[in-house]
Amino acid sequence: MTSTHPAVELTGLRKSFGPVTAVDGLDLTVHAGEVVAFLGPNGAGKTTTIDMLLGLARPDAGEVRLLGGTPADAVRYGRVAAVMQSGGLLKDLTVAETVRMTAHFFGRTRPVAEVLERAGIADLADRPVGKCSGGQQQRLRFALALLPDPDVMVLDEPTTGMDVEGRRDFWQAIRADARSGRTIIFATHYLDEADAYADRIVLVRQGRVVADGTTAEIKNLAAGRTVRATLPGADQAGLAALPGAETVEVRGDSVLIRTGDSDAVARHLLTRTAARDVEITSHNLEDAFLALTTAGGHPTAPAPALTAPATIGA
């Protein structure tokens, strides 16, 4: 079965709960085989978006296409599976019973022993679910998601509430699985998880995508600096053409240049212009994340600011 459709296509997605707008015109296309981190603070609309993506919630507006069809079709044929944040397990079943029972709900599945093995819980097969730790239960949810051998796997903040060891074990299981061609979308609010496991990071804030790029691009954005100088009558277009310059803002006699190459910009300002009082400030990953994902954050960081400058060494 070859598919020319994107794995996921979300267009103009909107969802409100009473007066609260959880998702506000979200667009996202994910291609087959991508590993995408859906990164944002709590309340950014990640879980609501995932619910709509899976057909667990109906959008107020916009469209969801999953593997070219509706979420319900994808679920019916076992082409999508999800690891939800919490709940969803019967405490009085054993780990193996849970997997066996769920397997009967699908037309075809991978063998029960295989998914237990791949999720790293083969040794817990006979343990009652109620006696499993949070991390073990999460690996059980992962085993259930592996059953239909889905083309798209969605994980909603899969490591919330786990200790460091639990998180590491869980991601090890996910990485060990890495079926070639499987699309993985995971929501997280941990920067390091997005950094370590995703090829692409989609930053969401207040129900919208505020930045979208490869991990390297996001890192580059984060690693960027701002060069500020006093330069009356600055040539804005000329400055914007400097290598690495991302945005140029003129405020009265001041000019602020966001750049991936602050040295080049500073050198240019000091040698080719009358600029004085040159200041260079840096941002780290955390700053970029906060700036992009908190209300009233950095005003000069709209989504299109992300370009793909030289990624060498990034």
């Binding site: 079965m1 019916r76 889905p150």
Partner: peptide, 21 residues
């Protein structure tokens, strides 16, 4: 490499369960 990796769809015979599960 990730974007150029051809998507290999599952080789499993996909069908809904008999009797609705």
């Amino acid at each position: 490499s990730t974007l150029t990796t051809p998507a290999i769809a599952s080789t499993m015979d996909r069908r809904p369960p008999a009797l609705g599960g």
